[in-house]
Design a protein around this nucleic acid. Structure first.
Lengths: 217, 217
DNA sequence: CGACCTGTGTAACAATTGTCACGGAAGTCG
DNA sequence: CGACTTCCGTGACAATTGTTACACAGGTCG
């Protein structure tokens, strides 16, 4: 779909200069991706960088044996660092990006991503900020798995999910959680029960209500 | 210490254009850092980006309780992504960088790092390659801790150490390994003994000899 | 030599996490 | 309603990792 300057000004308020918005309107494409859609998969190349306007995308890592684990979420005005390196370095993706909530993205062709970097300092800043944020996301993830036990990890997992989907009743099965945390269903069930006894969540079929004070950024 | 073009041409063969080498010689500083020196610590700012010429630097992550864990090593011609984001985004460091083997670095003032990006495409490429490599390093680290058990992790830890210090007899105590892997000495002793029984290593006081076929990149 | 310090080995036990085996609850669909 | 599927709970047990406690080996230094 075609972009209008008006639209861009509304969603990117003050972030980019007018001339850049004009160019963005020229070459950018708006797309809507349904829940479950793959934005990219390991081994794939990508020829345009997506900027997420609204919705939520989860970035997963898989190993050879088919196990998977959640790395972090992308949300409003985030861009994917992996797509940047893929584009700029012509490299294959190392991760999977799956739409978690219906997501609207603007895609920008590689050449422009590169070209704008020198022409618009606001764009350069955006690109580096993206790298920095993803780097921080990965460090957070590492902290979790290295320094915390499963029950704590489960709780922060749920809390992040809550901020990602913006509601405190999650529609998710134990199986899915287990999958994203690279462990087994029984373990998750056990720990969830434990959290419920501790009054931090409430369990229902296919649903989990988070009662915790959700004091996350 | 001052830099000469000759020196730069020798160590950066073909990586950068001549004009960039001239500028590098102009503003860059060579420094030698002794084993154990901190190149950067969490919370610090940094005003110049170091490129590692020779030696080895380990990047560690710490949590609030003082525990630490090894993230990855930097070696020849690597640059630190964290120092880039610190400089370009004026952000505090999230990691610790400690000299593992005597290391020679060229430091480059922030302004130039930024300025050259538009002027020299080889430099831009270098910067993005740096981000990409560090990103990959972190993903590898995450793979290890999420998908592998301690004994496997210990083995790859030892192998990486071997490639980092370029010798197959490591001078290290069990305590130090435990520290870098964020576990306890007893656990490491136990697993090392197990690896020795399996014929993969040989243990001596303060030393570990790796007998494994070291088929690492 | 004897006191002392550091590094290693190891047994015993605790806690956490993973696996297997089931049974039952809730929902779907004929 | 009855068959069937999916999801959840749970007990029992195994494997892994963490902790405590202690013995001993090798080196240093007076």
């Amino acid at each position: 779909m075609k972009l209008t300057i008006d639209y861009l000004q509304r969603i990117l308020t003050g972030r980019f200069e007018y001339k850049l918005l004009e160019e963005l309107a020229e070459v950018g494409q708006v797309k809507t991706a349904p829940v479950g859609a793959y934005l990219i998969r390991p081994g794939e190349f990508i020829r345009s960088v997506p900027i997420i306007i609204s919705g939520s995308v989860k970035i997963m890592r898989s190993d050879k044996e088919g196990r998977e684990a959640l790395l972090y979420y992308l949300g409003g005005l985030d861009a994917c660092a992996m797509s940047l390196t893929c584009c700029l370095g012509n490299k294959q993706s190392e991760i999977t990006a799956i739409v978690e909530e219906v997501t609207e993205v603007i895609t920008i062709p590689v050449e422009k991503v590169d070209e704008w970097m020198c022409r618009y300092s606001s764009w350069k800043q955006f690109v580096f900020q993206t790298y920095q944020k993803r780097f921080d996301n990965l460090l957070e993830t590492i902290d979790e798995v290295i320094f915390h036990k499963l029950d704590e990890r489960l709780l922060t997992y749920l809390q992040k999910k809550v901020t990602s989907c913006q509601c405190d009743v999650l529609s998710i099965t134990h199986e899915e959680i287990a999958h994203e945390m690279a462990t087994s269903r029984e373990v998750i069930s056990r720990l969830l029960k434990q959290l419920e006894k501790g009054g931090q969540i409430k369990l229902m079929r296919n649903k989990i209500s988070i009662l915790q004070p959700t004091v996350l950024s």
